[in-house]
Design a protein around this nucleic acid. Structure first.
Lengths: 220, 220
DNA sequence: GCGTTTGTCTACTGGCGGGAACTTTTGCTT
DNA sequence: AAGCAAAAGTTCCCGCCAGTAGACAAACGC
């Protein structure tokens, strides 16, 4: 058989790549000048392309914002499922989730801030879809808390509420984290993991060792 | 001023991207079927493009191999310089280097194996250039060892020889590491750091805590 | 109403990528 | 060994379409 198996299609990959670059530059500009303060022409200039080029990859400006707004929750949901697929105690899994999701928040800080600031500019339907996905995330997290509580691993009042609180703690990081600032990625992750540990009152608590190393930049 | 400042040029980025994808697929095939057992057509098929397409991004088959062969040492040299630019004791720096470089070896395992297997197929000039870069790496590492020894932080016989040994320990990992195998990335890194610690007989030795978490896949 | 921006349309073009030919190597047959 | 067919490496050439220039209608805010 030929190797047609994998999702190999350079054409499609290139289109994806272009969309990603448009999204990145748009996000940068939205972050610095706001959504309404940023023109499509400005995005095009940054990429040294023309306006019609952008319109051939995005239906309209709102689609770009929608794409940006979904980055955080999409990556987080994927990470959540990935972590829960790994066997281990509830605390092991929770720790894994908090580690990965906090890392995502830190590494995609600008996307998340833009989402929070510009949610009002989303189409109602789009905003709803995202809020629903966020709620599904919290719900899934609450299940982990509940099952950890059931086996006596955690001690907490209200799993859904605690799940939302934990989600909030992690998202909040985006608002104060600054690359190259006072706290490193690893320090923040460790701190959040410890905070969550207290929130759920893990039995047999043991110090979380400081994370090994901040990740090298994923890509320039 | 317009934003012409940064290295923004979507065209160039796309070309880079294409070269990278060619390199990746070629590497996969070289890894599984050997350099000589892999035809340009096979690489083209994988990417669903034609042979001339590949030739417009690589001068010839040898250039692809050369590019693959340089991946490991290039990333490692960059990591080395990055780590040495961070202030800290010799052991701090050495630990950082071993951590990052071992991670590079693990994450680029196939590239490194292909280089080792197929070095014979490189043009003599290309092979020489790479060996030179590797030797520069070892030399630079030896300086760290020597300066650590000078301040009494390390106790070792022969810095250049030990540097080469450490380089070998790290490179060797590529030959036995398997993704999803018995050892995780984090375990391997911790193990190598501990081994290096013994090799250089760090004063005031303290256990290296287990690394926090394996990195999530960089990209699919 | 005026200026700005979004989103669209048209006519054009340059260079990307593929078809196919050419050259070199491999390996099979005798 | 020699000769030859088949396969692989490399190059040439050209059609086509991705992306551009530029103008403009519609929508918006002031």
């Amino acid at each position: 058989m030929t190797a047609a198996g994998s999702r190999n299609n350079l054409k499609a990959e290139l289109a994806q790549f272009k969309r990603r670059r448009i999204r990145e530059e748009a996000n940068h500009l939205f972050y610095r000048q706001g959504y309404e303060g940023t023109t499509i022409d400005a995005i095009a200039d940054k990429l040294q392309v023309t306006k019609p080029f952008i319109y051939s990859y995005y239906k309209n400006k709102g689609e770009i914002l929608y794409d940006i707004a979904r980055v955080g929750i999409t990556l987080s949901s994927e990470a959540l499922e990935r972590c829960l697929a790994i066997p281990g105690s509830s605390w092991d899994q929770l720790k894994l989730v908090v580690d990965e999701v906090t890392r995502i928040v830190v590494q995609n800080q600008e996307y998340i801030v833009v989402y929070q600031r510009e949610e009002k500019n989303l189409e109602p339907e789009q905003a709803r879809a995202i809020r629903e996905q966020r709620s599904a995330f919290d719900h899934r997290l609450a299940e982990v808390l509940a099952s950890g509580e059931a086996v006596g691993e955690f001690r907490l009042q209200d799993p859904p509420l605690t799940a939302t609180t934990i989600g909030g703690m992690m998202s909040w990081v985006a608002l104060w984290y600054q690359p190259g600032g006072h706290w490193s990625e690893a320090e923040i992750i460790t701190h959040i993991i410890r905070s969550v540990e207290r929130l759920v009152a893990v039995r047999g608590r043991q110090e979380v060792p400081p994370a090994s190393r901040p990740q090298p930049e994923i890509r320039k």
